[in-house]
């Protein structure tokens, strides 16, 4: 849950939901509630950034005469 491992959008969303459940249940120490909240805000920010992390791009592999792939070029 530290985020050091490869975090994915899906995992982050799940963790965020778990944090909210924990806070709602109320059986966490005050300090933990703060770190949960901080973590939750980080996750929310991460998810937002993840949605926009990729730029739109449509490319196509081009091949030479021997049908060997050579490079990517924009596909229109």
């Amino acid at each position: 849950m530290t985020g050091e491992k490869k975090l994915t959008f899906e995992v982050a969303m799940k963790e965020l939901e778990v944090i909210i459940q924990k806070l709602d249940a109320g059986d966490v120490a005050l300090e933990e509630s703060i770190s949960l909240y901080t973590r939750g805000m980080e996750l929310s920010k991460y998810c937002r950034e993840e949605l926009d992390a990729v730029d739109k791009k449509i490319s196509m592999i081009s091949k030479d005469h021997n049908n060997e792939t050579i490079q990517e070029e924009p596909f229109v």
């Binding site: 739109k56 791009k57 592999i61 596909f75």
Partner: peptide
């Protein structure tokens, strides 16, 4: 999903 990345193998 407007900002997608697609690679076509023709």
């Amino acid at each position: 999903y407007p900002n997608f990345d697609l690679l076509l193998y023709p």
